[in-house]
Simulated scan of single mutants.
Amino acid sequence: MARPIKNPRPKLDLETEALAALEAARTMAPGPERTEAMKRAGILQNAVDMQGMLFAKRGRPPKA
């Protein structure tokens, strides 16, 4: 059973934060800081996906 979220964040805010984190991580030089930033971006993307927003894969049509 999933635990209830006390203060869920709005979907659009979470989506924009995930995209911003991903872009910031991509611009970093390779190293442990970039690895952690990519992990954080992935966690944010998963949170958005769980709320119903989907990230389209490059080169693939969106899922129906």
Score class of each variant (00 low, 15 high):
20 A>Y: 04
59 G>S: 09
27 T>M: 03
28 M>R: 15
13 D>W: 02
47 A>P: 00
7 N>A: 12
15 E>C: 09
59 G>M: 13
45 Q>R: 10
64 A>W: 04
23 E>R: 05
17 E>P: 01
54 L>I: 03
46 N>F: 10
20 A>V: 05
47 A>N: 05
45 Q>L: 14
44 L>R: 07
3 R>N: 13
27 T>C: 04
14 L>N: 03
6 K>Y: 01
46 N>Q: 15
45 Q>W: 06
13 D>P: 06
63 K>E: 15
48 V>N: 00
9 R>Y: 07
61 P>Y: 14
39 K>G: 00
55 F>N: 01
16 T>Q: 15
38 M>L: 15
13 D>F: 03
50 M>E: 10
24 A>S: 15
45 Q>F: 07
60 R>T: 13
2 A>T: 07
56 A>T: 11
36 E>S: 09
41 A>H: 06
24 A>E: 07
31 G>E: 09
39 K>H: 07
34 R>H: 11
31 G>N: 12
58 R>W: 08
49 D>Y: 14
41 A>M: 06
13 D>N: 09
5 I>L: 10
41 A>R: 09
61 P>D: 14
22 L>W: 05
33 E>N: 08
20 A>G: 10
30 P>S: 09
31 G>T: 11
19 L>G: 00
24 A>T: 14
47 A>V: 06
10 P>I: 11
27 T>D: 04
63 K>S: 02
28 M>I: 01
43 I>H: 04
1 M>L: 14
43 I>W: 08
21 A>L: 12
43 I>T: 05
36 E>G: 10
27 T>F: 00
53 M>W: 10
26 R>F: 03
18 A>R: 04
31 G>A: 00
53 M>E: 09
17 E>F: 00
21 A>N: 05
49 D>Q: 10
10 P>C: 08
36 E>A: 14
28 M>W: 06
38 M>S: 11
29 A>L: 05
4 P>T: 02
21 A>S: 10
61 P>V: 13
33 E>G: 02
60 R>N: 13
4 P>A: 03
26 R>K: 10
12 L>W: 01
9 R>W: 03
3 R>Y: 12
3 R>K: 09
40 R>K: 13
39 K>Q: 06
32 P>I: 06
52 G>T: 06
62 P>T: 09
56 A>E: 14
32 P>Q: 13
11 K>D: 10
14 L>V: 04
6 K>A: 15
43 I>G: 11
8 P>W: 01
61 P>F: 04
39 K>V: 02
11 K>Y: 01
8 P>K: 03
64 A>D: 10
43 I>R: 08
10 P>Y: 00
10 P>E: 12
18 A>W: 01
25 A>L: 07
33 E>Y: 08
12 L>R: 07
54 L>P: 00
57 K>T: 06
43 I>N: 12
10 P>K: 13
3 R>F: 05
33 E>A: 15
14 L>Q: 08
29 A>N: 02
22 L>N: 06
18 A>Y: 02
11 K>S: 09
57 K>F: 07
35 T>D: 15
39 K>F: 08
32 P>F: 07
58 R>Y: 08
9 R>F: 01
27 T>E: 04
12 L>F: 05
7 N>W: 10
44 L>D: 01
14 L>I: 05
2 A>S: 12
18 A>Q: 05
25 A>W: 05
38 M>C: 11
8 P>D: 11
57 K>D: 13
59 G>L: 13
8 P>C: 12
5 I>T: 08
62 P>I: 09
50 M>I: 15
7 N>Q: 14
8 P>E: 03
8 P>Q: 14
13 D>R: 11
21 A>P: 03
